[in-house]
Design a binder for these strands. Structure first.
Lengths: 152, 152
DNA sequence: CTTTACGTTTACGTTAACGTCAAGCACGCG
DNA sequence: CGCGTGCTTGACGTTAACGTAAACGTAAAG
């Protein structure tokens, strides 16, 4: 249902149906429709992330052209969203990865940010682990109840 | 800064400043202000969760009276929020814990829901672990850069 | 009995994260 | 050249999760 949704657009401008355009010798690029489908989001969502400065695709004329870098970022964005981070915060985080690290002060700032982030993430790690553990406990009780029903 | 925010209200109606009211012989109860402060949320937030049916405190006259059950739920709600779940979804989850498990069909439904939830949570677990790992990788690179700077 | 400190309801405001038109370019095909 | 398909830019709408203000109730304290 995911890939069959694309009413065969091949033969028009790009040969492949889901991959990057055939572009021998250069780095591969994608259209907005392709990245949107690949990450299972809408065009609007992708453009929204651009509005907030989370991605900044190349412009060829008026059209957006997406590179590997943009796809990497999109992946990070969506994972951040799954973890419940607001987009603005996600932006500061992934910008960190591309931040200049030339001077020592910058590097130390980045290292400090990394530590903050890690603490945040480790809190969430505990939360998830606790939740999974409680769910397991609950399942055990349910299976007990089921056993009681069987013995009657 | 957290507990000093309470401008000494003791001696008024309850003896303890942060604990449940003195109520010997019965189960402890809390006011909305007490649970709000304990979980570091506003009254409005607590009432909002009640509006959505996430908690349903006792009413003594017009006033809300919170029991241990309500505090347990509030904890689950806030953890769910930290994990990025929408409140409506959180409601269906914690309602699951109090759901009737008398008949076999009900039990099997509950067990099915548990499985769905676990899959969801395990996805998030992977997300968090991946994020932490990448952060570690990034930190290593930064420390490398720092070493390069030191050698000059 | 008035004050004070909380608590309650009602209702409109706000922010984030998009959804949903509307209207216009741009290009490749018949 | 017109047509269809996809891309682009506004701009307004929507939902979730509260914030905030108004206006009133109430119970202990002075």
């Amino acid at each position: 249902m995911t890939s069959s949704a694309t009413t065969d657009r091949s033969g028009t401008r790009a040969a492949a149906e889901a991959g990057p355009r055939a572009d021998p010798g250069s780095s591969p690029t994608w259209t907005i429709a392709q990245v949107a489908e690949e990450f299972d989001v809408t065009h609007r969502t992708v453009r929204h992330y651009e509005d907030l400065g989370l991605i900044s695709p190349e412009r060829r004329g008026t059209q957006r052209v997406y590179h590997r870098r943009d796809r990497t970022r999109l992946g990070l964005i969506l994972r951040g969203k799954r973890l419940g981070f607001p987009l603005e915060e996600i932006r500061t985080i992934i910008d960190l990865f591309d931040a200049p690290r030339g001077r020592r002060t910058q590097l130390e700032y980045v290292l400090g940010q990394i530590d903050e982030r890690r603490n945040d993430l480790e809190q969430r790690l505990r939360d998830v682990q606790d939740a999974i553990a409680e769910l397991g406990e609950f399942e055990r009780r349910c299976r007990d109840d089921l056993g009681q029903l069987d013995r009657a």
